[in-house]
Design a protein around this nucleic acid. Sequence first.
DNA 1: TTAATAGTGTCTTTCAGACAATATTAT
DNA 2: ATAATATTGTCTGAAAGACACTATTAA
Lengths: 250, 250
Amino acid sequence: MTEEQEFLESYNPGEYAPVAVTVDVVALTIREGRLHVLLVERGGHPFAGWRALPGGFVQDESLDAAALRELAEETGLRPGEGVLDRVHVEQLRTYGNPGRDPRMRVISVAYLAFAPSLPDPRAGSDAAGAFWVPVEAAGELAFDHAAILADGLDRARSKLEYTPLATAFVESEFTIADLRAVYAAVWGEELHAGNFHRKVLSVPGFVESTGEIAVRGGERGGPKPKLYRAGDARLLHPALLRPAREDDVR
Amino acid sequence: MTEEQEFLESYNPGEYAPVAVTVDVVALTIREGRLHVLLVERGGHPFAGWRALPGGFVQDESLDAAALRELAEETGLRPGEGVLDRVHVEQLRTYGNPGRDPRMRVISVAYLAFAPSLPDPRAGSDAAGAFWVPVEAAGELAFDHAAILADGLDRARSKLEYTPLATAFVESEFTIADLRAVYAAVWGEELHAGNFHRKVLSVPGFVESTGEIAVRGGERGGPKPKLYRAGDARLLHPALLRPAREDDVR
DNA sequence: TTAATAGTGTCTTTCAGACAATATTAT
DNA sequence: ATAATATTGTCTGAAAGACACTATTAA
């Protein structure tokens, strides 16, 4: 008897059933001012032809590494090219209800990925099945992926409040207006430009000045804005809170 | 070929390796004003004799149900007796680094459980191996359980700020001082009684008055306090924020 | 009686949000 | 020139935290 069998039977005699562990990735980016999620079109059964979150089996690697690998495979991006290195990846939640996959018991560890505007996956890669979709146009998804996406969006909206997560959505040098566009896209509401500007600069470590200014102003006029890069804060104090909505509180 | 084999090989040809999925529970309660965690002493190899978080295999049940079942088994509490129904259980995070269990690949979905002061597990049950330990005396734990516990404590401390979680640690009727003792135990610092009192009552839906007063005052004197029960708020607005510590921000 | 506690009042500082004003730039 | 934008200033109200005070109760 192998040590593995002994292990399994000693804990749970006679009731061991095979389980598969996968990662699914909610990859978010901002394109043209709107929040997009990366989806794939399923080829095989079940849910053939449906849209789904990119994902796959966990191999001999950490869960974080599996998520990053799946993201790289589906987007066609290669590690080391600098693009993937700037993608922020974090674990979201694990989904494992019996019956969520009709074939067998599948435990899915969901991940969130935040990235500056990424190139279209179709361009020059074998990941032809993936595409960016505005989150409000995601529609129905395979398995329980719609619920996973909803949880991911909740998490993203919440983390904008008390972490510098927004800087993960912009280039390494950015303007305050760039940052404000991230908040507007993720929260789905406009923010007051003047108050936002003062607030961002008042939070220690959120952003730091590069000393440079942008080469040109806004598309429809205005002065050339100053450029900033992400600061060293891990938490925003005081936080950038959304106005409380009654629905959330009750 | 079964559908399961087909499924596995089509996704990951030739690389499938067996995986076990477990739940581990960080169960927290407050006894004598101090935060305690439920631990078990391991019998078998590896880490024989070490302390560990209670946990076990996921059976044909949801992950949430598995966590609740493990908690019930280890504490000797039976469902339906009213005690377990008042335990708040939520998913914490999933741990799955290769090598975290030397025997085979084990993915552990960790859960947090919050409960009012629970009876000692040894009393009248077959769960003789479990016991409550003050969190600062947990010491070294088997596997990566020390890291899981640390993550659980972080989560608990954080959720006290913006959710009514503290009410899960007290009886169904409680005083403001009871609530303050929860915050003091979890955060590890005393809170100003007067300001805390006013703050709790000012947050809509945090607590509601029962109209009753306690049968007696504090152990060393003082007026008989009013009694409250948990309100209907799911989030605290405005939140009850801890003073920011530099360590957290940087 | 003494000491501790519940609950309330007051003041200061910080911060969010509304609104205004000015300077700068694309078209 | 015109309109849009970046940035700064001002004001108001909410809220946090420090501190003080009174009434009530256990020992």
